[in-house]
Computed example of a mutant assay.
Amino acid sequence: MDMNDTENVLLAGASGVLGGHIARALRQRGYTVLSLGRGAGNDVVADLMNRDQLLRAVEGLTVHTVVHAATALRKAAMRHRDMFATDDLRVTGTAHLVEAAQLAGARRMIAESMVFGYGYRDFGDRVLTETDDFGCGGRGSDVRHLEGMRVKEELMLNTPGIEGISLRFGLFYGQGGTESIVEMLRKRQLPAVNDRGRVLPWVDLADAGAAVAAAVEDGTPGQAYNIVDDSPLGFGAHLRLVTATFGTPRPFTVPGGLLRPLSYLYEMTRASMRVSNARAKGELGWKPQYPSCADGLRALAAA
């Protein structure tokens, strides 16, 4: 592996589920992927929260692009406090990674973001686009999460000399993610709620990885893109679709208020948003291989 090849992509978060899909999509396009993380198995070993260690680790390295897909999560967040370390990573860790990218001569940076940056609330039938306010408002712990997403985007999009691009992903499902949901449903550990007309945007993990590869090559500097499929679906409806596709016991339905102790999950299940992916289709040439969760789940079950 040539650590100074001009087609190198330094991928923070390569060991994560999304990171694996990103690495696969980039390699399919001929890029050399250098993994960045704390574990000894990474090509570049460093903690994003440790500035001095990170800058030492990339010293002498030359890369084409840096992709920031790192997260502090080891499992799905259920309570607001489960997101706090990731909030910190979005702010402090991103600032350190931008410095490292500049030191390594990176021309382009891609940020993983999420549609909840528009707000953890019910937007009704309004279709959100990239021109809507992002990372603003909120209440309680939401403010902390939104601030993290806003700062991460600003650092990536507004650093002089860096062609920054942000990808605002829908909720992930697919290979490496849905299997844990299936297992929880089989053990009857995961309740569902009545969506009451609420819907959320989703994206298959393989489609998400392909979007990152498309952004590396065709993304417009300073631009954000919504990366979601064509068919929003309620949180409870998604669980029931997983049940039907994989033949697990049906999840028991509980009143939404009973999820209040699981504060972050509660906020997600009460949110509703329809998000446009037109810009990603038009500018990146990206479109989801799986236009709906039903399509992606059927493919996963067949595999």
Results as ranks from 00 to 15, higher is better:
286 W>L: 03
179 E>V: 10
10 L>C: 02
298 R>W: 04
278 A>G: 08
205 L>K: 00
122 D>K: 12
240 R>Q: 10
254 V>F: 10
244 A>C: 12
97 L>A: 05
105 G>H: 06
101 A>W: 01
224 A>R: 11
106 A>I: 00
270 R>Q: 15
101 A>R: 03
69 A>Q: 09
147 E>W: 13
284 L>Q: 08
18 L>A: 14
88 D>C: 04
203 V>K: 00
195 D>R: 01
50 N>L: 05
299 A>F: 03
169 F>C: 00
125 D>Y: 06
283 E>G: 11
229 D>A: 13
102 Q>L: 14
130 E>D: 06
64 H>A: 13
200 L>Q: 07
228 V>D: 01
161 G>A: 11
280 A>L: 02
68 H>W: 07
44 V>F: 04
233 L>H: 07
116 F>V: 09
228 V>N: 00
282 G>H: 14
210 A>K: 05
261 P>C: 12
60 G>Y: 15
139 R>D: 12
50 N>P: 06
147 E>R: 13
235 F>E: 05
130 E>K: 09
26 L>F: 01
91 V>I: 15
17 V>N: 03
109 M>W: 07
243 T>C: 07
108 R>M: 09
62 T>A: 14
284 L>W: 03
265 L>K: 02
69 A>I: 12
112 E>W: 01
22 I>D: 00
296 G>H: 05
154 E>G: 06
242 V>F: 11
8 N>G: 13
162 I>F: 10
170 G>N: 02
31 Y>Q: 02
303 A>W: 03
221 P>I: 14
217 E>K: 07
1 M>W: 08
8 N>M: 04
35 S>C: 06
218 D>V: 02
53 Q>C: 07
118 Y>Q: 03
283 E>D: 15
74 R>V: 08
104 A>V: 09
105 G>M: 05
255 P>K: 06
243 T>M: 05
34 L>F: 08
260 R>A: 11
289 Q>V: 01
78 M>N: 05
175 Q>A: 02
163 E>I: 07
209 G>P: 02
246 F>R: 09
198 R>Q: 10
271 A>K: 03
197 G>N: 09
264 Y>G: 03
75 K>N: 12
15 S>H: 14
229 D>N: 15
17 V>P: 00
